[in-house]
Amino acid sequence: MSSANTIVIAVQDLAKSYGKVVAVDGISFEVHEGEIFGMVGPNGAGKTTTIECIEGLRNPDQGGIRVLGMEPKHSKYRLQKRIGVQLQESALPDRIKVWEAMDLFASIYSLSADWHPLLEKLGLAEKIKATYSKLSGGQKQRLFIALALINDPEVVFLDELTTGLDPHARRAIWDLVLGIRDQGKTVVLTTHFMEEAERLCNRVAIVDQGRIVALDTPENLIRSLGPEFRVTFRVTGPFEQNAFKKIQGVSRIEQKDDRVTIHGKGDRLLSGVVNTLEKGGVGFRDLRTEHPTLEDVFLILTGKKIRD
């Protein structure tokens, strides 16, 4: 990032409980200007509570928050003029039309700028007279992005942006988010799709049970697992492990029914496995290599699979 790491959000030791349920248990992090900062974790990890404290929607029990130099608790309205928010759970009145919603929100921010180009950019120009309840899931989400961007905010918060969307709509939304960053805005998003975090985020905080268990770029998080990758294939007959253990770089071999997974590292691993299969006359199919993903990082750090 060229913008020299100006800090736009600083969260220090944030904590928030609902009754006896601890939602956020001492979270600290900083968000730099112009980056896409992601919080990933399962439902109930405390992502939404954290983001809503930053937006000024909730008051934390403890901890300090500064956003664009302001404290959300004390400067709620001043802050909300300069940020844009897409909530995880929200809606518009069923019978409101797209243009009416845009017009109303423009008036809330007392804007004079024309919002039509924004709708066009988000692919909603043809839906301008459509009623909210008649929009598809992806269109509703794009409208919420439009409303979050209508005041030309410096920081945009996107909470579970693509939950409930089909893969096609999800990819379209990803391009939009990258476009928001390219305009120089800072984006804070939460997701429980690891692929989404990997694709979009400059830095990712992995959140579990109200704490940040790791925070780094997706590449570094994955690299922290080491250079290991795996080769997997299905065998069509009996399989004898011994010959494969001798291949350079192999660390361990797993077999479950006909599915064999060979873990290891190095450039020679894949060719070694294929050669050994050919030499030994082992029948196989579905051979592929798998590189570690954020999913694996999450699994190793928290000991559980993230649920979709």
Binding site: E55, L57, Y77, R78, Q80, K81, V85, L87, E89, S90, A91, L92, P93, F105, I108, Y109, L147
Partner: peptide, 17 residues
Amino acid sequence: TYREKGILRRFKTTPLR
């Protein structure tokens, strides 16, 4: 319904009083 559907929440994120 405005409260239940989250319409009020959406307004709460704006400078609207």
